[in-house]
Computed example of a mutant assay.
Amino acid sequence: MLSTGSPPTTVQGRCSISWTHSGGRSSTPPEANVHATSPDGCVYVGWLPEDPSAWQRNIVWHVRVQPADGDAWVQKFGLHTPSEAVAGFPAALVTHSSC
């Protein structure tokens, strides 16, 4: 069973060190925004709890994908989605991507 680990820690742990990270340092509370971008720039994952409307919409995770030869798309995840599941989603995309 997946836990609901700290989003900053989980995103930074699952997205390899070659990803670009901002926000969510170890001294930052879990309520701070965290951004990670894949090395090729095709995949972005964001934990965006600082947006008050995100809590009202129940959407605090955003994954954006820009394929090299296709239309961009977005996947959004709610408050109750385990951070490990969200972090695994873009990690799998990058591993099996032709971006």
Score class of each variant (00 low, 15 high):
Thr10Ala: 08
Val74Asp: 07
Pro39Tyr: 05
Arg57Asp: 15
Thr37Pro: 00
Ala68Leu: 10
Gly41Ala: 01
Cys42Ser: 13
Asn58Pro: 11
Val86Asn: 05
Val65Gly: 01
Ala87Ile: 05
Ser6Thr: 11
Cys15Asn: 13
Cys15His: 01
Gly88Leu: 08
Asn58Lys: 14
Cys99Leu: 09
Ile59Trp: 02
Pro29Phe: 06
Asn33Gln: 08
Trp55Ser: 09
Ser18Arg: 00
Val45Gly: 04
Pro52Leu: 07
Ser53Trp: 00
Ile59His: 00
Gly46Trp: 11
Ser38Ile: 14
Asp71Ser: 08
Ala92Met: 07
Thr81His: 08
Gly88Cys: 07
Glu50Trp: 04
Gly78Asn: 15
Ile59Arg: 10
Leu79Tyr: 12
Ala32Gln: 08
Trp73Leu: 01
Thr4Arg: 07
Glu31Trp: 06
Val34Trp: 05
Ser3Val: 14
Ser26Met: 01
Glu50Ile: 03
Ala54Gly: 13
Ala68Pro: 04
Asp69Glu: 12
His35Val: 14
Val43Ile: 15
Gly23Phe: 07
Gly24Ser: 11
Asp71Val: 05
Ala72Arg: 12
Val60Ile: 15
Pro39Glu: 10
Gln66Thr: 15
Ser6Gln: 12
Arg14Asp: 08
His96Thr: 15
Leu93Tyr: 09
Gly13Arg: 13
Asp51Glu: 15
Ala36Thr: 01
Gln56Cys: 04
Ala92Cys: 01
Gly24Lys: 02
Val34Ala: 02
Pro8Asn: 11
Glu84Lys: 00
Ala36Ile: 02
Ala87Leu: 13
Ala92Asp: 12
Leu79Asp: 04
Trp19Ala: 15
